[in-house]
């Protein structure tokens, strides 16, 4: 299964991403992967440091928005870029909880091939839906 694709000619100054996953965990991981790849060439990032993320929300799409926003928060706060995310989501009643681990390293302008400094995850066209194959999400990032 393809992890994600960029939707061309949508929100032209920004980047529109459609990501896929068999389950919610994989969908969230692939959404994160798209954010990582848009930020830098992940092949040049080493797995040196880990950051853990714990979140909860009242819906899966709010949880996805918060999770992706958290990645941007960690990027700026710790000057880090990431290459991998592992996500575990559980649902109790109407509450979704997420435990995730992000792996990457501190930014080095000389070593890393940096791309876009994503400013924020927007709610424009934001969508998380169930499909025949699993799940699909659409989100636009502000660059």
């Amino acid at each position: 299964m393809k992890k994600y694709k960029i939707l061309e000619d949508v929100a032209i100054a920004d980047i529109a991403i459609e990501a896929y996953g068999k389950g919610l965990n994989e969908l969230f991981e692939n959404c994160a992967f798209a954010v990582f790849e848009e930020s830098a060439d992940i092949n040049k990032i080493k797995e040196k440091e880990k950051k853990s993320v714990k979140l909860s929300a009242k819906s899966a799409d709010d949880l996805l928005f918060d999770f992706l926003s958290e990645i941007l928060f960690l990027k700026d706060t710790y000057s880090m870029i990431f290459k991998k995310a592992s996500v575990k989501i559980s649902k109790k009643g109407n509450n979704y909880s997420l435990n995730a681990e992000l792996v990457g390293e501190p930014i080095n302008r000389k070593k890393h091939e940096l791309r876009n400094d994503i400013k924020a995850i927007t709610l424009h066209m934001f969508k998380l839906e169930k499909t025949k194959e699993g799940y699909k999400a659409l989100f636009v990032v502000d660059v």
Partner: peptide, 8 residues
């Protein structure tokens, strides 16, 4: 003037 992703 630092520029680029996550610059300090």
């Amino acid at each position: 003037v630092p520029a680029g992703v996550g610059c300090k």
